[in-house]
Amino acid sequence: MIKGREFHPILNSIFDGEIRGINETEQLQTNCPRCQELDGLSNPDGKYNLEINTEKRVFRCWKCDSPKFSGSLGRLIKIFGNTTDYALYKDYAAMFNDYDEVDDDKDFGFVELPPEFILFSDMDTKDDLHLEAYNYMVLQRQIEYPILLKFRIGFCFDGKYAGRIVIPSYDQHGDLNYFVSRSYRNQKPPYMNPKADKDVIIFNEGLINWDSLVFIVEGVFDMLTIYNSIPLLGKTLSNNLFLKLK
């Protein structure tokens, strides 16, 4: 069964049938109209850099830069389709509990871990710089090593995030969607996070058992010590999380 197949005819119409994977898979590829415009081309470039996932209802172009062109499927249809296309999309999307029309006006941004990121599972136990980060988590924060592995936590000792623990977030499909970095060297500011909309994600949703009791906590370090918990990353409940908990 192809999830999000209801959206395929809409996309096929918008992109004139030039879509790879249509009616065959959730992961589609087509030529990016934004790239075509930026490159001053009269016709599509034929590189199929625009990827669309109809199950997740998101898109991203792998070529567009500053910033990466990405967002909700509704945003894509709203930009390149007509009012009928978008109205039909909203009718189908409304069947999903996590759909919020507000997301169709947002650029989700694209999150990547820092290039200097090192997993604790890959640390060098003979390297003092690696041990500095490890001791902060295990000795000072009292976070057990298996927890570091479970949440795929790491650190950076150089680069933009030098001297920081990095706690990544992955969605229900295993894709990175955010991360929180915390200084272990008393740097200012203590927290430094990517420029991405944290209100559209549920932190580490892929690790949550929705059939069990779910705890809401304030920050990521609370999440590491409380089973089946979700950090707010702020003071209020995001709309996405509210809809999921209903």
Rank of each mutant, 00 (worst) to 15 (best):
134 Y>N: 07
90 K>Y: 03
155 F>P: 00
109 G>C: 10
168 P>K: 09
172 Q>M: 08
179 F>L: 13
156 C>I: 12
169 S>K: 02
134 Y>Q: 09
203 F>T: 13
120 F>A: 04
201 I>Y: 01
132 E>V: 02
135 N>T: 11
136 Y>L: 11
129 L>T: 12
196 A>D: 13
128 D>L: 12
198 K>Q: 09
105 D>C: 02
141 R>Y: 06
185 R>A: 06
178 Y>T: 08
96 F>L: 02
156 C>L: 12
127 D>H: 07
184 Y>M: 07
163 G>C: 09
141 R>G: 05
177 N>H: 14
137 M>L: 10
106 K>N: 09
158 D>I: 08
140 Q>T: 08
163 G>V: 03
96 F>A: 00
181 S>E: 05
117 F>L: 05
70 S>T: 14
179 F>D: 06
154 G>N: 09
77 I>H: 00
139 L>G: 05
189 P>Q: 10
103 D>M: 07
122 D>H: 14
99 Y>C: 00
193 N>S: 10
169 S>Y: 01
130 H>L: 02
127 D>G: 04
78 K>N: 01
171 D>N: 15
203 F>P: 14
160 K>R: 15
81 G>P: 01
177 N>P: 14
128 D>P: 14
143 I>T: 08
189 P>M: 09
86 Y>G: 00
207 L>H: 15
189 P>C: 09
113 L>T: 11
79 I>L: 12
75 R>T: 00
99 Y>N: 01
208 I>M: 13
130 H>F: 02
176 L>E: 04
75 R>A: 01
95 M>D: 07
78 K>C: 01
86 Y>S: 01
130 H>A: 08
74 G>R: 01
88 L>N: 03
94 A>F: 00
113 L>P: 10
135 N>D: 15
142 Q>C: 08
87 A>R: 10
147 I>M: 11
170 Y>L: 07
207 L>T: 15
88 L>D: 02
69 F>I: 08
115 P>N: 12
119 L>R: 05
99 Y>L: 00
177 N>E: 15
180 V>P: 04
202 I>Q: 10
198 K>A: 11
194 P>G: 11
167 I>F: 06
110 F>W: 14
175 D>L: 14
129 L>A: 14
133 A>T: 04
98 D>K: 02
106 K>S: 06
105 D>I: 01
81 G>T: 00
116 E>G: 07
205 E>F: 09
188 K>A: 09
199 D>R: 03
